[in-house]
Design a protein around this nucleic acid. Sequence first.
DNA 1: CTGTTAGCGCCTTCAC
DNA 2: GTGAAGGCGCTAACAG
Lengths: 358, 358
Amino acid sequence: MAASTLAQVAQLAGVSPATASRVLNGSARIPGPEVAERVRSAANELGYVANAQAQSLARSSTGLIGLVVHDIADPYFSTLARGVQDYARGAGKMVLLASTNGTPSEEREAVAAFAARRAEAIIIAGSRSTQAQDQQANKELASEIQRYCRFGGSVAMVGATFPSLAEMPEVRVLKVPNFDQARELAQSLLRIGYTSFRIVAGPQGLVTSDHRVAGFHDALAQSGISSARVSRVEFSREGGYEAGLSIAAELQDQPSPSATGTECIFAVNDVMAMGVIAGLLERGVRVPDDVGVAGFDDVETLRDFRPSLTTAQLPLELMGAQAVALALGSIEDDPLRSVVGHVMLRGSTRSSETEQAT
Amino acid sequence: MAASTLAQVAQLAGVSPATASRVLNGSARIPGPEVAERVRSAANELGYVANAQAQSLARSSTGLIGLVVHDIADPYFSTLARGVQDYARGAGKMVLLASTNGTPSEEREAVAAFAARRAEAIIIAGSRSTQAQDQQANKELASEIQRYCRFGGSVAMVGATFPSLAEMPEVRVLKVPNFDQARELAQSLLRIGYTSFRIVAGPQGLVTSDHRVAGFHDALAQSGISSARVSRVEFSREGGYEAGLSIAAELQDQPSPSATGTECIFAVNDVMAMGVIAGLLERGVRVPDDVGVAGFDDVETLRDFRPSLTTAQLPLELMGAQAVALALGSIEDDPLRSVVGHVMLRGSTRSSETEQAT
DNA sequence: CTGTTAGCGCCTTCAC
DNA sequence: GTGAAGGCGCTAACAG
């Protein structure tokens, strides 16, 4: 670990450390053109690599950005991470990654670790949970964040926040149109002829899931439909799969199969929708012939899935970039601005033709 | 940015910084039980968070692990990243992420940045390129790595390395059975009755792609088949898609459609295979009825894809963990050990039934 | 068991 | 333009 130091370089070049420092990272004072060369070649000869830790300490600024996600292997988060990473590099920062499995306590640890490393900003992505069992951990997370902010750190959260955080003005939040897009998605589905709905949601209390459910319900209510059965399952492919299996069973037991083709299942995210479809297919229920399925997010890796998934698109990568910009203060925290999404009607729901025929 | 310091805590507690340090992170010397409490409450009161930068400097060890991947949004890398992250956390380390778009020069920058931050280990994933245009950048990457190693850093590469690096004994490499698994995959495909093959590969010179192609060819040659057409396209979904389109055209122009069902396309990774299938379908070629398709990697997000993809499974997450362990020296660098993969025959290739019928 | 003294490697006034 | 101090926050010998 005996990396060479600035002092060594300076000595080899026959100058003071101060001068060496000035040429090796361009300060205001411009060193002599010929001296500079000497220093540079000395540095090169010794294979000198500035110690960023020491630099950070000295100038008290680390160039580090912390990213907290539930699961980096999940396409939602990994796409977001790409946006974060790209933007960060553009701004000359490095990103520290923490994948927390979604537990608030691990998130707290991650924030604490980032704070210890004096990250300049922390991006927290992934849905909050308002479940009773998480209250305590949430509080602790909140106070960890608060402490971090109090000492000059800035944090941006992607999407919904939770009560304890709601009153923290230091925390920027990148608003994600979960409610609105779910609402629009429902409206689109109604427009193409669906008259009956089921919702496959995550556990109650998971904010993102709840907002999407609420938005969807809102649109239905507006159309006079009040009865969308909601299945609460794990917020994952597995959860969707199980929901798919049991819905298939229900559908097949149904005395009146008259509803065939007019019922649609809304899974609150694409990965769950995948599971739902897999479960349905496993039981012989066809999509979209027997029942339609819609997701949320528009995950790119699933683009070629058949039937292609009707979903609400979110600009994941852009969101990552914006979150960093927000935290860094590169863009203003305009309370009105929100990420913009788009409803994508595709093959997993009945086609427009069917609509016209209906 | 005025985080409180150890000195402040010490003062408030009425002890020396040394003592404060001892209680706040448990050194060998165990401070007095009652003094400890004073320090702890002082720290708590001030919201003290140790400055990891300063700690690293003082004890010259950072607890940082650098991960460089081509594209963190690609499921191959994000799954690997999960493994890296999990293992790292278990070992009490943090991971620094760099997503480089696969260009050697950006990889070099990433390694340099990690070296500057004094990361204890660097994991480099993603295929090398031996193309002429990359030679220079490769060399620079190699020397960057060399320098890093010379000063005590340890690096692990996942999968194939490249010439300039081959002679660097300091670099551990996690051997990935690209050749062998491609070979086994081909054998399995032959066994279920395919007699004619096409390969959709990445650009020539991309080591991973080349190895997979070579392994596949090897098995074919052993069975007396020497003519597998190889399409060279981009190493991505888009590349696969274009290959799919043109293969579809060729297949349809083919005077003798007798081969229907006995030809199989091997795409060198799952994401490309997705693209291939999409291209084929777009032109009305059915999979696996008209032609079989196989991929490589067994990406989890694509598990529910229909037809389910025949592929060679790689334990991506485990690989990430092993790479870290290897770099950290937690496991020996056994030149014989290799990651173990499995051929997964699934719906995108003809079923065994068809085989028996043939 | 606790306090003192030196640095870790670098940056940054401040004089020259 | 260049060098000489002092300090960033913490740890690690040393003494007591």
